[in-house]
């Protein structure tokens, strides 16, 4: 459903990691790990077509290069480790308000949606950023350490939420996690991103 063939950084644009290829069936989550600075975020940025890169990516048979960029990014949703907020309140970043059930699943108080963004904790912002992306019903989620600022309970809740979304919508996800235990809890295949050996 989501196929990645020989994707690597365009020389000069980001850290040089070895080309990555994989095929991800629907309803599956692939975990991704690698040493700090090897280019995990850069790889996700490449999959979201946010930086120049080499290789090709297909979503349900349609190539990245043949898809309008805005449409690609809406369906292959990258959620950065430090998501940006530009409007006053989280709600202003949603096209449609998130269902109450989602907020409850992530233990988020609905009043947070209309609080000033800078008053939210890092963990709250991280979870709201996942909801903001998922609200657009993407086919693939690219998650960059989404639980980094969450305690064990909230991390498990977010993991459950994403697993449920992927299952119910026959979607897929690529999940960067430095935590081996978390990767085991997510299950599925895992890929290591390796630094390019200078020739």
């Amino acid at each position: 459903m989501f196929a990645v063939r020989a994707v690597c950084a365009e020389p000069g644009f980001s850290a040089a990691y070895q080309p990555v290829s994989f095929e991800l069936p629907a309803s599956h989550i692939l975990t991704l790990h690698g040493a700090s600075g090897v280019g995990k975020s850069q790889f996700l940025r490449a999959l979201a077509d946010l930086t120049p890169h080499q290789g090709e990516v297909w979503l349900e048979g349609r190539a990245l290069s043949a898809t309008p960029p805005a449409e690609w990014r809406r369906t292959v949703a990258y959620i950065p480790a430090e998501p940006a907020w530009w409007a006053e309140t989280p709600l202003a970043h949603f096209a449609t308000p998130p269902p109450a059930a989602w907020l409850a699943a992530l233990a988020l108080n609905p009043t947070l949606l209309e609080s000033p963004v800078e008053r939210l904790s890092t963990g709250e912002r991280q979870r709201l950023a996942v909801l903001r992306a998922v609200a657009l019903r993407p086919r693939v989620l690219l998650l960059d350490e989404p639980t980094a600022n969450l305690d064990a309970t909230n991390a498990a809740a977010l993991r459950g939420f994403i697993q449920t979304y992927v299952q119910e919508h026959a979607a897929a996800a690529v999940w960067v996690s430095h935590d081996a235990e978390e990767r085991r809890a997510i299950g599925g295949d895992s890929v290591a991103l390796l630094a390019e050996v200078p020739s």
């Binding site: 946010l50 990014r73 809406r74």
Partner: peptide
Amino acid sequence: SQRTAIEGRLLLGQTADQ
């Protein structure tokens, strides 16, 4: 200075113009 915000909008499926 607003690079991350602009990219954040792109990531939500906005076009460069938007």
